[in-house]
């Protein structure tokens, strides 16, 4: 993300490249507020260049083997480590088969050059309202695992992101992985991004749909609409009802376009965003329902 600034150079900082998680945590403990974790650097470096943050210690985690983790366990789910890049996820067959919304978001995020460096966790930690990563993760009910020298904790991605450039992370802490719960075979999920005439999304949306005779579970998540990703809870409820699915979809889409908090910004007005919420919700849900 670049806002534009007069600077070409970076502010001064000390660069650390720990080999183990413990080492990284010790550095974070030591430098506290003065330190920043760097994964791909795709988000961090521009922010530093533009003097929006000026950490005096940058802790590069790319060489920490423990964080290069990408593992699926049946019944448990998928774990994505902190140094896993978008490109690595894109090539991971299981993602395409099972977690389609995340797969589509990963594929649509930026370009190859960025994807080769950018990590999914960096994407979440950056907490920029227009990014794609958090949207499908929230739809799957994913959690982040956070470690410090004396604590391990887990928190849902939905709570972890508190607002623009604001996350639930204290000095001394690091996000080690994201955990996606396992999902039933019958579940469907998908992601759409509207970015015609924009680098980032004016609106992105992920849906998770489990509609069987026995169980119904629906999640609709929207990004780029206000300060943080949001679920359309009322719209989800409509989809849980019995009845003609096509009619429910259209009702749910209208509801979503009304219930969410939406703002105007440089990319789009509130009105247009609400309209897009309606259209994209219908489109995504229709596609998912049609899929066999």
């Amino acid at each position: 993300m670049s806002f534009g600034s007069p600077y070409f150079t970076l502010p001064e900082f000390t660069y650390h490249k720990p080999k183990t998680l413990r080492e990284a945590l010790e550095l974070l403990e030591k430098y506290g507020d003065e330190a920043k974790v760097m994964a791909g650097g795709v988000g961090l470096i521009p922010f530093m260049k533009e003097r929006l943050i000026s950490p005096t210690h940058v802790i590069d985690i790319k060489e920490i083997a423990e964080l290069k983790k990408l593992e699926y366990k049946k019944g448990e789910g998928l774990t994505i480590g902190a140094t896993i890049t978008f490109s690595e996820l894109e090539k991971y067959q299981l993602l395409k088969e099972k977690y389609r919304a995340l797969y589509q978001a990963v594929k649509l995020a930026s370009d190859n050059i960025i994807r080769n460096r950018a990590t999914l966790i960096g994407n979440i930690c950056e907490a920029i309202p227009w990014v794609d990563g958090p949207i499908p993760l929230i739809a799957y009910g994913a959690e982040v695992e956070i470690k410090s020298l004396d604590e391990v904790r887990r928190t849902p991605v939905a709570d972890f992101i508190k607002g623009p450039v604001e996350i639930d992370l204290k000095p001394g802490e690091i996000v080690t992985s994201i955990h996606l719960p396992d999902i039933p075979e019958e579940a469907k999920s998908g992601f759409l991004k509207f970015n015609t005439g924009s680098e980032f999304a004016l609106l992105n949306i992920a849906a998770y749909l489990l509609i069987t005779a026995k169980k119904k579970d629906v999640r609709l998540v929207y990004g780029a609409i206000s300060s943080k990703p949001a679920r359309a809870l009322e719209a989800e409820k409509i989809l849980l009802r019995d009845g003609d699915l096509n009619a429910l979809i259209s009702m749910a889409a209208i509801k979503a376009s009304e219930e969410l908090e939406v703002i105007s910004d440089v990319l789009a007005s509130e009105d247009y965003r609400r309209h897009l919420i309606k259209i994209l919700t219908m489109k995504l849900l229709k596609e998912l329902v049609e899929e066999v």
């Binding site: 806002f3 534009g4 920029i128 309202p129 607002g163 623009p164 604001e166 206000s226 703002i263 910004d265």
Partner: peptide, 14 residues
């Protein structure tokens, strides 16, 4: 105006 304006408008009130 500027980056804070584009980014932080929704959180400015808080």
């Amino acid at each position: 105006s500027g980056p804070l304006g584009s980014l932080a408008k929704p959180m400015l009130e808080g």
